[in-house]
Design a protein around this nucleic acid. Sequence first.
DNA 1: TCGGGCCGTCACCAACTTGTCATTTTGGCC
DNA 2: GGCCAAAATGACAAGTTGGTGACGGCCCGA
Lengths: 230, 230
Amino acid sequence: MRGRLLLVEDDPALTDLLTWHFQREDFDVEHTPDGDEALLLAIETPPDIILLDWMIEGLSGLEVCRRLRRAPETANVPIIMLTGRGEEADRVRGLETGADDYVTKPFSPRELVARVWAVLRRVRPALAGEQLRFADLEMDLIAHKVKRGGKTIPLGPTEFRLLRHFLEHPGRVFSRERLLDAVWGRDREIEIRTVDVHIRRVRQAINFNGRPELIRTVRSAGYALDTDAA
Amino acid sequence: MRGRLLLVEDDPALTDLLTWHFQREDFDVEHTPDGDEALLLAIETPPDIILLDWMIEGLSGLEVCRRLRRAPETANVPIIMLTGRGEEADRVRGLETGADDYVTKPFSPRELVARVWAVLRRVRPALAGEQLRFADLEMDLIAHKVKRGGKTIPLGPTEFRLLRHFLEHPGRVFSRERLLDAVWGRDREIEIRTVDVHIRRVRQAINFNGRPELIRTVRSAGYALDTDAA
DNA sequence: TCGGGCCGTCACCAACTTGTCATTTTGGCC
DNA sequence: GGCCAAAATGACAAGTTGGTGACGGCCCGA
């Protein structure tokens, strides 16, 4: 399974067509024709991407999009809007409301699939099987390998996930709390300062012979990849 | 200036049109009609986003895209392809080659602008809003970083919050009392003159080698960002 | 069962921040 | 020019926060 996709669409024929295409891409497809239910589902267990029709039962697609963006659980989940409304003004409105892409019916399923991958490459590079890069560091998610300047670096599983999280959001500061959530899991029972220790271990591993520090400490806020080092 | 945009396009009319639109959005627009030159420019100083026409002089747009993705300097720079080729196969090919979006001519500049922002929201969240500016000073709230004239400035947590407060209300005068409320919190038990000291620390930090003063002292009233300096 | 790698904690230390105060400088006003 | 209040400055001690070394437990494969 490559990821979970939530399809919000009330045309049964289109639903079947898209479900088939995305299942073939190894997505776990969840479906609802209803705007309100879409919100509940998405917030309950956030999918990796949402396909959202504009004209649906219950809330309009645009309103669903707006609320998804406002809810912290789904604020970062990518959304692609599907719609018959081809007016420029509608498209601009959809994109400005927080949609990542806006596709006008009729569209080709293959193109939609390609657009989904294009968005996921950005948001969840891990799903798209991409290499992550930052400065002279590269992480191969498939081979589970990290290199800096060509030299392979041994990392433990936790260190790997921690570094990966940073690479997926370069420059962004994460508090220790958020790192525990993201790297250890939401239901951890772990001492907050443990994060420090793992940060140190990652640093030690990637800063062999005098390479510049990549992880910046932001006092009283957390840690981040240092975009100045890139 | 919100960001640097590289436009690779050989139609002069379209070039002018897009340049005008993106300059109005505060982009610094760089332009070349030639694929080879685009590569050189992009790798030399990576822009924040690239608009790439498929049919250009020199290398084809698709090939430029491929090479940009391969070069470590530009592997993460978002690319939007512009093209007259509306075939589904072409679009899929463009997206699979690493483009973040694929826009078919004729398109509306407004929509293109909206799509650029949609992509930048993902790739450089700081550019798309979570950033404060005043004169040559920029504060990135997501990265928790302050720069003046491109140079990163180290600030303690309190200094950061203080400066942020000013940047959020440029020009406005705040009494020491109000600053204590806003920056330290309403339930502080802090000597009023402490504000002076922190103002000094911020000034010292941001006025390195002879840069003009940004924080104006308003005698017997408080402090404010000096709008004359902007 | 032994050994090594990985992991979570802790105690201690170093570095940095921060609030305060005494003193000097500045600016406005007569 | 002299005076006064307000603001800037220098210095410092106390308080926070992050970095570090070390340790014991756990799991897994030999």
